[in-house]
Design a protein around this nucleic acid. Structure first.
Lengths: 161, 161
DNA sequence: TAAGATTGAAAGATCAATCTTA
DNA sequence: TAAGATTGATCTTTCAATCTTA
């Protein structure tokens, strides 16, 4: 590269390894889940989040923030899942503007059926691919980065073109 | 969850931290690059890979494999970039079936202009967010996982539905 | 006015053909 | 028949606009 403020060769190697894993791993997990259970990773995440709630439902905006999706994306996604019977929508009594995504019985059964496949994938491709200590270390490193991403201000980016 | 073969609470925390970073970080980098230089991350990666070659060009299939994109995705992407003047296509003399993606002068200038912004983002959100030792550790952990993903056979996934 | 949520159009990714040359 | 690459249709995501209630 051309710029002074670049990364060292070693840093660049690390960065590219990160890029590779974050491209390859979701791909692998998605294909496994899709071919065995006709479920995308995005659908799976939504089923999981809903399944963890006492009544198996969550406000749309809360679900969006937990799955790290935009409201718009979640809304489209939930519409598709409604069409395939995995979730349903319900109005919200406490706040007339709000709405709930509700896991259906079918959605619950699909989740229970698919979960072992997904967990096996996460184990196979990540957790068990590493010494336990390294996976734990990875986790705490990621926690630091998440915190930083959530907390720090994004600087105003100068336009140099 | 419902299944025996789940992750421990600690493993699950790690896994979710991973998921969060791999959703938030590319998003952040993409927005910074997009708003300052009207460039997507995918476009940036392609410009970088081409810029590293002696003649600033690469066969389509090689470029696809380096950017971890499918041939189809790369082909569409390069068509768009051709339309915006960042790259051009050229036939291949050694193999009549092949074609090259070639970085244009404009593409080169855009890359040189945008690179500091991208590098600053990678630094700000990842490299400098961690003690140097942790970032190095992350890199070597990722290298192990990449190797595993590239090497190990995907098991035949049983269908239980 | 703002917050919760949805919508439709446009941009991007995926999938299954297809085309051409080896 | 297979490899390199592209295409068109379909599905998903993004973006800006909109609708409704607070």
């Amino acid at each position: 590269m051309v710029d002074d403020r670049w990364l060292t060769v070693e840093q660049q190697r690390s960065w590219r390894a990160w890029l590779a894993v974050s491209a390859l791993l979701p791909d692998r997990l998605e294909h496994e889940l899709k071919s065995a259970h006709d479920l995308s990773l995005a659908e799976y995440e939504i089923l999981v989040r809903l399944s963890e709630e006492p009544e198996r439902r969550l406000r749309m905006s809360e679900l969006a923030s937990r799955t790290l999706a935009s409201k718009s994306r979640l809304s489209h996604q939930v519409s598709r899942m409604e069409a395939s019977g995995l979730v349903s929508r319900a109005g919200c009594l406490e706040d007339g503007r709000g709405s709930y995504a509700q896991l259906t019985d079918h959605g619950w059964r699909v989740l229970v059926t698919a979960a072992p496949c997904h967990v096996a994938g996460v184990r196979r491709w990540l957790v068990d691919a590493l010494p336990a200590e390294d996976f734990a270390r990875l986790g705490s490193i990621m926690a630091v980065v998440v915190e930083h991403l959530a907390t720090a201000e994004s600087p105003t980016v100068g336009h140099s073109g």
